[in-house]
Amino acid sequence: MKKVSLMFYKRDCMGCHACEVACKQEHGLGVGPRLVRVIEKAPAFIPVYCHHCAKAPCKDACPVDAISRNEQGIVLIDGDLCIGCRECVEACPFGAMQYEENKEIAVKCDLCVDRLAEDKLPACMSVCPTGCIHFGPEKNIASVFEQHA
């Protein structure tokens, strides 16, 4: 199975935050954890999101092996195994790992793995009005830059 990844083409992010709310809705999250987030520094907007790193620091940091990488390359966390130590939140170089206060566990982007199984796009990407969110085979995703150049 081809490995997939997620990428935001930052220059086309206009800071509408639609991805954030789509993600909250899809994952049933309330106020607090933001699996994707756009920081506003108008006229620039900086998306913060999980890169599903090939060698994931969050996974390496987890003391109970709650974080794994599936055959598609999607880095997933098992909420039942998580002990809420926040080592992964500290370890993530992108600020993408989040903590769910209510459940006292870490949460993260699962690249909408359930939607992918139904042949749907990740929730964030499906609503983005500028099409700045890209998802696909890891090796091809760099070609996004060529398309935009």
Partner: peptide, 18 residues
């Protein structure tokens, strides 16, 4: 989003999604 919409093509904003 409704991908068949002739106006929005499946995209939505934060207000609608909430």
């Amino acid at each position: 989003g409704d991908p068949d919409s002739p106006l929005s093509y499946g995209t939505l904003c934060a207000k609608c999604l909430a």
